[in-house]
Design a protein around this nucleic acid. Sequence first.
DNA 1: ATGATAATCGAACGCCTGTTCTGTGTCAAG
DNA 2: CTTGACACAGAACAGGCGTTCGATTATCAT
Lengths: 223, 223
Amino acid sequence: MMVRKSKGIGERHKKILDFIASYQREHKHPPSIREIGEHCDISSTSVVNYYLDQLEKEGLLERDRKISRGMRLIGDTNPLGDMLRVPVLGVIQAGEPILVPSESPFTPEDSVEIAMSMMPSKEKGKDLFALQVQGDSMIDAMINDGDIVILKPAQDARNGEMVAVWLTERNETTLKYFYKEKDGYRLQPANPAFKPIMIKKNETLDIKGKVVMVIRKMERMAA
Amino acid sequence: MMVRKSKGIGERHKKILDFIASYQREHKHPPSIREIGEHCDISSTSVVNYYLDQLEKEGLLERDRKISRGMRLIGDTNPLGDMLRVPVLGVIQAGEPILVPSESPFTPEDSVEIAMSMMPSKEKGKDLFALQVQGDSMIDAMINDGDIVILKPAQDARNGEMVAVWLTERNETTLKYFYKEKDGYRLQPANPAFKPIMIKKNETLDIKGKVVMVIRKMERMAA
DNA sequence: ATGATAATCGAACGCCTGTTCTGTGTCAAG
DNA sequence: CTTGACACAGAACAGGCGTTCGATTATCAT
């Protein structure tokens, strides 16, 4: 035999979940049991508690017993995921040196938010910074005008890492894969259509940071 | 004359902010006034309240009066930012049609988290999906092997939007800027080194979605 | 029908929590 | 020395909130 109704979650459960989500979006904190009851047409707090328990057993909700408004949705829109706020320090373009955090003169005007879960490996440090690419000069790195590159400050790099370097002798900023060779360094463009730059040992290679992530937003709504 | 100490925030304020942050990370919800007092060596709840008010005036904290544990840090790591969990439905490559949500056979194995604040315009819908690029076939769209493209399901597009299309006659999936012309459509690669594809009116143009964002993680640590 | 289980209600209990008020000591300015 | 802003303590208050419990109704298998 099988259970009559509710072989999992019913309409009532969904309504509660939706309410918690929308309430949280509006108030920045979870609702109380009574608030849930009011907006979901449940007159008794015990019934709400009843449903909340079920939702928890179902793995859709997490509760902190005894704590006021101690609940949070899991999965779905995660209202509690840790995210990193990365400051956008300025722009990066071929012709000019880039700004690194220590050289940044004033507070960054803008910032981007990245979910911690998206961060590679151990780059969870808070010293990351971002730059917006200006112009098409990074095409050889497969990076467009307007893209946002997220960097981790560094003075050196290991083979295969993409770095932001300032080539003093050439007065040029560039993003390339870094490789140490016998008599210098090889800077390999991400785009195979471009040739690597060979750096002799005597040339200065000023590594500013490692590229951790590239983000391209497609919002341009051309006419 | 100037105030004797605390010309802004002092050591005590920082300690409180730090505690709120660490408490939140551990308990998934903010601490109560009394809990703050205990861990910051403040014996009176009114004093904690006193400091909290100052922090709010300073713009470092936001409070929901009357609500238990109604406070949240602003700036810094935002523990309450809304984020979108976008399912990664599979891979996208030139030779094969892509999966759209309605055709997806099973639950996506993985997902990516994007901060709502990063989403362009009104694409806050929950029907977004993501695909991982396989191979170098999207080079003309300035997209690398391994990149993640986030798409919004769509059957049509406006000029200038980047779309994912399935070219039935050519058995090919591609990402291009969409332009409607007199006698058909023009599919413009993002990389200016590549030429546009002209689609005659009689050819079928199967738009699968609009590209909302592209994410490239640089985690490859070559030997 | 009937008994078991699920769903719901209403009320009361009691802790938790933010708020408020009074009082105290400190320190710089007048 | 007096004044007053500031930092802090302590206690009391009142309301919010989760919890619990007894009781009632609905639903379905037998």
